[in-house]
Each structure stands twice: as C-alpha cells, then as structure tokens.
Design a binder for these strands. Structure first.
Length: 596
DNA sequence: AGCTGGATTGGG
DNA sequence: AGAACCCAATCCAGCT
C-alpha cells in the first residue's frame, strides 16, 4: 500500500461528527487538555503554528492512529506515561514523541545550554510526577478522566506550547544543537519504550517460578507461614548458637547472638561471616539466602507482580542522575539470576536475549577517540584485547584495572594496575582523569550528547571554603579533601556511565522502529496477553542497562535477532559516526531466559 | 501510626 | 574479599 500523503490524511482523518484535519507541512503536534477533550496545536519545522483543534477524549486514539499513518510527525506532550499508556491500550502505537518533562530536566541542567536560557527559571516543569502510572491500562471509558491530576505538571495546551518553544530555543542557542537534538529525541524514545515495555510485559511462567521457589524453599506455606527449608535452616542456626529463641531477622539482635556464641563479627553481612569458622556460619548463610529469596521474589511478589503470564514492572526513564533508567515497583532492574528460568516465551514464540559485552569501556574508547583502546576492543572480548597489548598479564587484571579506571579506584590491586592502562591508553585515561579533576574542583561534566551532572551542593562548597581558610582545622581539611575526591569519582564515572546510557537509548530507539516494521504474523496463535499492538510481531519485553529481551513469534526470531544487531550498529554510528568501535553482542534465541 | 535511616543483598 | 561508580527492595530500629 502506498504511503499516504498528508493531504490524503487531511481528507480522511475524521472522527465522529467533527472532522479533524491535519494541515500540510505539520512536523510537531503538541497535546494538551481542554476540559474533557484533547487539544492539539500543529506546528511546522520552523515552529509556525498551522492550526488548533480539539478532539474528543473517547476518539482521539483513533484519530492519532490515522495521523500517525501519514507522514512522519513528532508528538509533543507533558509526560509520556500519561498519554501513551492510553494510546497503547486503545491499539495506537506511535513512532516519535518529545517528552517535555524529561527534556526540560536535561536542558535545564545541560552545560551546553546558555546560562540565561528562559527554561532555567524554576517552573512547574521541574515537577517530578509522584504518582505511578495506572497499574492497569485504562479503559476507553476512563480516557476522559483528568490524566494529569496527580503529576503536578502543567497540563494545558498553551503551557505545553510555551515550554516547547523554550526548549527549542534553548537547543538552537546551545553550543551543540545537534547533540542536544539527538539526546532529547533519544530520551523521548526511551519514554515510549518504557511505556511499551510495561504494556507488553515480560513473559513470565508462574509455574516455573513456583518450581524454583519450591526447590529452594520447600512447598508454599499457608499465608504468613515459614517455608520448610527456611524453618529448617533457622533451626540449625539456633542450635549452633545454643539460643533457641534467637531472632535471625533483626540485624542488631542477630549480631548480639553471634557475639554471645563467640563469633566476633562486626556486621552480619555475608562476606564477613564467610571468613569465620564456626558451626553457625553455614546454616546462617543458607538462612539469609533463603530469606532473601522469599522476601524479595517469593510467592507474595509473584502474586503482586505477575498477572496473565506477564511481569509488568514500572520503569522510570531518566530516573538516575547519569541518565540510566530506574525502576519503581517490581524491582525490574534487580531480578536475581536465580529466577531467570521463570522468564519464558509464549507457545509458538521465543525470546531474543542480547547484551553488549563491556559496554562502558567501549563507549570510553569511542568518546575519547582512543584508537589503541578501540583496537583492543575489536572483536569479542575487550579485556583479552587489553592483555594482547601487554599492558597487563591476565584478563582478570585487565578487568579490574579498567573498572578501577572508570570508578576511580586508588587502592588495592585495582588502584595498582590503573597506571599501566594510563601508559597504554593515554587518551581514554585522560578523559576520565579530566572528568575527575573537574569534579574535584567543583565543576560540572557532561556526557557525549550533553547531559550534565548536578552542580555540587552548597554544603560541599562550604566545606571546601572552610578548609582553605587560615583557621581551618586538620579535620576540616581532611573532610574537604574526602568530599572532593568523592565528587571526583562521581564525575569520573558520570561521563562514561551516562554516555553508555545514551548508547543504550539509541539502541532501543532504533530497535523498536525496526521491530515495528517487521511483517506481522497474522495467523499465529499470537501472544494476545501483550496487547493488540504487540500480539502479531516481535516486541521489546525487557531492558536492563546493556541488555534487551525481545519476545518474538518463532518465525520472526531470526529477523528480530538481525534487527537487534543492526540497531546496535546503528546506535554506534549515530553517536560516534565513523569512529571504528565495535559493540559486539552476546545474543541467543531461546524459549527461556535460563542461563545455559 | 507513619516516616526515616541503616543494614543487607539483588542488579548493572 | 573488597576496593571503586550508579541503583531498588526489604526489613528492622528508632524516631516523631
């Protein structure tokens, strides 16, 4: 079918009794609320307003789908979860958006943006939504309900139009508009992905989860009961302590019990306990392991977070200062490897599981333009490549040296090995060392695409001034130095971790487009639990910093895997152009995410 | 009763 | 073993 033109759309896009046309030349569509309706403004590429309309809240998803079928547009709105969850529930997928809240946060803090930019003035756009997205996708009936009541963000059309103009001005007047355009587009695409991930869900087999729990803990106890094997371990611990009433769940009480039994640990952490020889150690470590599994990902978690064979966590794009995602509820970013066997494709479907090997050092090589490190990274294993340069003797040394360089280690094996990397990869090491120095001096550093770290707090500055005063005490100086070094380690890591997060956003943004373009599998006994938008073709199902899981009909698995690889290559080009850096993937196609 | 912070352990 | 960066979730203790 030929791609519809915008004129075709203008003639065709009518909803209900009122015809709502999209003018020619439209590039941006800004959304806001107008009572129960959705109000829209059409803008062209030069920000010239082409017209305003309102669309009924009960029909705007259909209208948006028709607009989306035409020439490329970017939807502009205050907060992606508030709008896009509704659209997906109604079966409308969008390709591009501009999330005003997320982009505001980036531009407000970016060192690339002029200090006197209008959007630096504090407004409601600095609000952080405190309400989670709706737990269940809203029904069409609910679309008219005020979607923004809980966010604290401006919700009306003129607010959005004005903020959008401020953001465009800030980008255009910045020291590098190209990078900030990329970053705001990538961040916004990530916002779409996060909503899609939640809507589609991660295919989860509750029976497999239950089998794992039963194997480790014993049969599921009655509500409030203690699983058999946990009870068992607890009994053995109390016997070894000679204290039948010892409380194992309270850290201070457990510590006292251990002391009474002659185990003079300073904490009850696993690594410290493991160094002692005493009959209580083995069962106590076992108890802690089981207790952890039960409380973090036991049957209660399963009941709360898995429904209809899907784990639907809440992702929070931009939730970490570095630009990484955070999660809120469900613990999506902390799923223990132990439970991966519960991640299981639907019948007739499979999983494409891919992660980037050594993402951060590769990003460092590219952003610093360090050819030697890029050469060492060529192929599969960057650490083996470092050994081949002769900088260090073993792969293990290469790894802790590189991690030490990116995290700012100064002591131990890691601190000792970093100087060797400095000789072999001077440009890469200079980049992180410069970032550390800038941070120690109170400065601000930025990622490759222009996300900047927060400025130091007033307390930090005060400590530094105090230490340089004539009457400063030794304690003042020690504290100021420690805080300066702490901040140096933070900024050192910020530039690398943040740029890696940008690479991952670009990877996913490109990937979701490729997956959406794959042929549907209309006759498949497809995965309807992922919702209408995702039930006939491969879709993203999970994301974790440097790893994605795609859920795909079996006959599209190879195509999806190719899309994952091509998207990685595309992300590398988008960020680093022709610089010769590889981002090799560990990729496998399987029915279950269980490690082999 | 509800909040906060510490300790611990899971993830990268 | 940890170190050294970014986190979240849980439980308990201690506070208001």
């Amino acid at each position: 079918m030929p791609r519809p033109t915008s004129r075709w759309i203008a003639e065709r896009a009518s909803v209900g009794t009122s015809t709502v046309r999209r003018p020619d030349r439209t590039t941006w569509i800004v959304l806001g609320r107008a009572g129960a309706d959705v109000a829209v403004v059409f803008l062209d590429a030069e920000d010239v307003e082409l017209g305003r309309r309102t669309v009924g809240a009960d029909s705007w998803a259909t209208w948006a789908a028709e607009i989306e079928a035409g020439e490329a547009v970017r939807w502009v709105w205050n907060d992606t979860p508030r709008w896009y969850a509704e659209l997906l529930a109604a079966g409308t997928r969008l390709a591009r958006c501009h999330d005003l809240r997320l982009c505001h946060a980036i531009l407000r803090d970016s060192a690339l943006v002029r200090a006197d930019a209008d959007l630096r003035v504090h407004t409601d756009w600095d609000a952080t939504p405190h309400a989670d997205p709706p737990a269940a996708a809203p029904t069409l009936f609910e679309l008219g309900a005020a979607p923004d009541a809980a966010t604290g963000l401006p919700e009306f059309l003129d607010d959005a139009v004005r903020e959008f103009a401020r953001q465009r001005t800030a980008i255009d007047g910045s020291t590098d508009p190209g990078r900030l355009r990329l970053l705001t587009a990538a961040e916004s695409a990530g916002a779409l992905v996060a909503v899609e991930l939640r809507a589609a869900g991660l295919p989860w087999d509750p029976q497999a989860h239950d089998r794992i729990l039963r194997g480790v803990l014993g049969p599921r106890p009655a509500a409030g009961g203690t699983p058999m094997k946990l009870e068992d371990a607890g009994r053995r611990v109390r016997a070894a302590l000679g204290d039948p009433s010892a409380n194992l769940d309270s850290q201070p009480k457990l510590l006292r019990s251990l002391h009474r039994a002659g185990v003079l640990v300073e904490s009850t952490s696993r690594w410290e306990l493991a160094q002692y020889r005493h009959p209580v150690i083995e069962p106590l470590l076992e108890y802690k392991k089981l207790s952890r599994l039960l409380s973090a990902n036991g049957w209660a978690w399963l009941d709360e977070w898995v429904h209809d064979g899907r784990f639907r966590p809440v992702y929070v794009p931009g939730g970490v200062v570095t630009g990484r995602w955070a999660s809120s509820g469900g613990g999506a970013l902390q799923l223990p490897r132990q439970l991966r066997g519960a991640v299981h494709a639907d019948p007739g479907w499979c999983l494409v599981i891919a992660d980037v090997a050594q993402l951060e050092p590769r990003v460092l090589a590219a952003m610093s333009g360090d050819r030697a490190l890029a050469d060492a990274a060529r192929g599969k294993d960057l650490y083996a490549g470092i050994v081949d340069t002769g900088a260090v003797a073993t792969r293990a040394e290469a790894k802790i040296a590189m991690l030490g360089a990116m995290y700012g280690a100064t002591t131990g094996d890691s601190g000792r090995l970093v100087p060797r990397l400095r000789r072999t990869f001077p440009r890469a090491m200079a980049l992180v060392d410069d970032a550390a120095r800038e941070g120690e001096n109170g400065g601000v550093v930025s990622t490759w695409l222009g996300r900047s770290c927060p400025a130091p707090s007033a307390g930090w500055h005060a400590a530094q001034s105090l230490a340089s005063a004539v009457e400063a005490s030794g304690g003042d100086e020690t504290r100021a130095r420690r805080w300066a070094r702490d901040r140096g380690r933070f900024t050192r890591n910020f530039v690398v971790q943040g740029t890696a997060a940008e690479w991952a956003l670009a990877w996913m943004a490109d990937l979701r487009g490729r997956l959406a373009a794959l042929d549907a599998v209309p006759d498949s006994d497809a995965a309807p639990r992922s919702g209408a938008v995702f039930s006939t073709r491969p879709h993203l199902a999970f994301f974790l910093h440097d790893e994605v899981v795609v859920h795909a009909p079996r006959e599209r698995a190879e195509a999806a895997a190719l899309a994952v690889r091509e998207a990685a290559a595309s992300a590398a080009r988008l960020l680093f152009g022709d610089f010769p850096i590889d981002f090799p993937l560990d990729l496998r196609i399987a029915e279950s995410a269980q490690d082999d």
